[in-house]
Design a protein around this nucleic acid. Structure first.
Length: 506
DNA sequence: AAAAAAG
């Protein structure tokens, strides 16, 4: 357990943290905050829900405050790039919350809304600029923002950024940043493209890993319900009438589908709304806010909400459609079981989705127990699934073949990049696993550490002065000896899947 | 294949 008070944070920040009700740092916070305060570059393998946002918000605020200087008009000192507008707003909130006792301004810019207020705020001067790529480039082209004073650059959700085709935009932005700066790159996975990007923008970075996936997945009660496509909506409405499903996020594969599902629920008298990329920004904000406020029983979303969005108290995730990308399944169900609570993930599987289900089971290395005790159970779909292959056996770690499926193979710290790495005069302290209990309460819930960051090698970059070796090798221990994925007994319904209803009138 | 992001 690491207390925030021991991380070297200044009083106004500790006060804000305490006011939020937190005292214990999550592993990524315990590991990253001292490094970031010391000015190091960090490569963080982590997704939201591990406390990642606070892990960089707090030290950035502190550094900006301690090296206080006048902000020239249009010239922010920190740039944070995120793939989605919602994420940008969320990070903006984090700066507001933790910076409330410091005179540090922050501005969020993204598309879908008028640019004038954003332009005005930047012109007035803002220490922190949080942006989605499109609007940032837009404002840069119009000379409304300059990036030549950037001291800290954060690239959040880098893998997703690349998935969404932002690599060129990111490169354009990086090209105009000062070479001498502190850079943080966060990514949930490490495909080659992210490794390349990390190599080119980080200098002498520490790598910090947390594995929310395996651990989160463990705490989630997963079930699959075989159902014909035509019965899905009725099944969903039935499930949602159950009072246990107080706050449920329903994932659909398409934007249109999400709308139709939300309409159907509304007609059935269930407070629901949809969120997806075709909705106006105000509608997106409204849906998210009312869901957060508890006014909606269900939020129907596309994968816009699969990652990153951090909402407390989501009791259930329902995959109305199975994602065709297995990784997406893991991200989706990770919306529940946060803050150390339990959660349930219920996946509908129809005829055409059996193959997706198989892929998912392979990726998570465990079969998902079927729950047949519901009114719309489709026997034939279940049979297709049962006969298609034996349930996947857990494989030995290291046998995974998929770049995206990174979460089994880390455990040993590595350099951020792949370049041959002459070790600088860094304290070669072996990474001794020092147990760090998973934080029960921290700005953004718990995660688990796996890797011990280690002062590491130089890169091929020209500018690498101002980079000191790590003052100490932070070693957060491997706390998840017990967190290996254990396949559950298939078909053993246990726990809180609320589906004991008898066929309703339909 | 769909989704996100600048219009």
């Amino acid at each position: 357990m690491t207390e925030f008070s021991g991380l070297g944070l200044i009083e106004p920040l500790l006060r804000a943290v305490a006011e939020e009700g937190y005292s214990t740092a999550t592993p990524i916070q315990a590991g990253a905050i001292p490094l970031l305060l010391a000015g190091r570059d960090v490569l963080g393998l982590a997704q939201t829900g591990t406390g990642k946002t606070a892990a960089f918000t707090l030290p950035i605020l502190q550094r900006l405050f301690q090296n206080k200087k006048r902000v020239a008009a249009k010239s922010p000192r920190t740039l944070i790039l995120t793939p989605t507008r919602e994420l940008a707003l969320q990070i903006g909130d984090s700066f507001t919350t933790y910076g409330r006792h410091l005179p540090i301004r922050r501005t969020v810019i993204h598309g879908g809304v008028g640019q004038s207020p954003q332009v005005a705020a930047i012109a007035r001067g803002t220490e922190v600029l949080i942006a989605t790529p499109g609007r940032l480039l837009d404002l840069m082209a119009q000379n409304h923002v300059r990036l030549d004073q950037i001291e800290v650059f954060v690239l959040d959700e880098a893998d997703r950024m690349l998935d969404m085709g932002f690599i060129r935009d990111v490169r354009k932005v990086v090209a105009v940043l000062p070479k001498e700066r502190q850079t943080l790159l966060f990514s949930a996975t490490m495909p080659d493209a992210v490794v390349d990007l990390a190599n080119s923008i980080l200098t002498d970075a520490e790598r910090i890993e947390v594995t929310p996936q395996s651990t989160t997945v463990e705490r989630i009660n997963q079930r699959v319900l075989f159902v014909e496509r035509s019965d899905k909506r009725r099944l969903l409405a039935d499930l949602l009438e159950d009072s246990a499903m107080a706050r449920t996020i329903v994932f659909a594969r398409t934007k249109h589908g999400a709308d139709r599902i939300a309409d159907h629920l509304k007609k059935a008298g269930i407070a629901a709304d949809a969120i997806h990329g075709d909705k106006s920004q105000s509608a997106r904000v409204r849906a998210l806010e009312s869901f957060r406020a508890g006014e909606l029983r269900a939020l129907v979303a596309t994968d816009i909400a699969a990652r990153g969005i951090d909402i407390d108290g989501i009791s259930h995730v329902i995959n109305f459609d199975l994602p065709n990308e297995p990784e997406s399944y893991v991200h989706r169900i990770g919306r529940t079981a946060r803050a150390g609570t339990d959660g349930s993930a219920v996946s509908f599987c129809d005829h055409e989705e059996v193959g997706y289900l198989k892929d998912i089971e392979k990726t998570i290395r465990q079969p998902i127990p079927a729950d047949t005790d519901h009114p719309y159970h489709a026997v034939d779909v279940a049979q297709i699934h049962a006969s298609s292959k034996p349930p996947p056996r857990p494989k030995a770690p290291g046998s995974n073949r998929n770049q995206n499926n990174r979460n089994q193979q880390q455990a040993r710290p590595r350099n951020a990049g792949t370049n041959p790495a002459p070790k600088p005069a860094a304290p070669a302290k072996a990474a001794q696993p020092k147990p760090v209990a998973p934080a029960a309460k921290a700005p953004q819930k718990a995660g688990k550490p796996t890797g011990a960051p280690r002062p590491d090698a130089a890169r091929n970059d020209q500018n690498r002065h101002d980079r000191r070796p790590a003052p100490h090798a932070v070693s957060h221990g491997n706390t998840h000896g017990a967190s290996k994925q254990t396949p559950r007994a298939a078909g053993t319904p246990g726990g809180n899947t609320p589906m004991r209803r008898k066929p309703s009138a339909a």
